[in-house]
């Protein structure tokens, strides 16, 4: 019981500390990303906008509320946050692709 408690405590603390660090430096990652995305508007309407990142071949669609659509800065902020999320996601995607490709390459 004591062992399990220690394990859980260490795991929870780790997740908390790790996510705190990632959260703290999130914006810095995004700014370092300049030049790594090339956004192109695919389609747009009054309440949503669909864009494609030509470099990373990722598409994203944003739903915009009335207040958000009112100003360009709000739209930009939301786009910016979406790019950041995609950037982190793409790192994990590429890593998993490498492992998968290697696996199939050598196993088949």
């Amino acid at each position: 019981m004591k062992t399990e408690l220690v394990n859980i405590l260490l795991l929870v603390t780790f997740v908390f500390l790790f996510s705190s660090i990632v959260n703290y430096y999130y914006d810095d990652f995004a700014s370092a990303m300049d030049g790594n995305v090339d956004l192109l508007v695919e389609s747009g309407s009054a309440d949503s906008i669909k864009m494609i990142d030509q470099k990373n071949r990722e598409s994203m669609e944003l739903s915009l509320s009335e207040e958000q659509a009112e100003t360009d800065s709000n739209v930009q902020a939301q786009l910016y946050s979406e790019i950041k999320a995609n950037f982190i996601k793409s790192a994990f995607t590429i890593t998993s692709r490498i492992f998968t490709k290697l696996y199939f390459h050598f196993e088949t």
Partner: peptide
Amino acid sequence: QGNYMVALAFLSV
């Protein structure tokens, strides 16, 4: 310039 915070992030992790 500006990327030293990313280096710091890597170091922190």
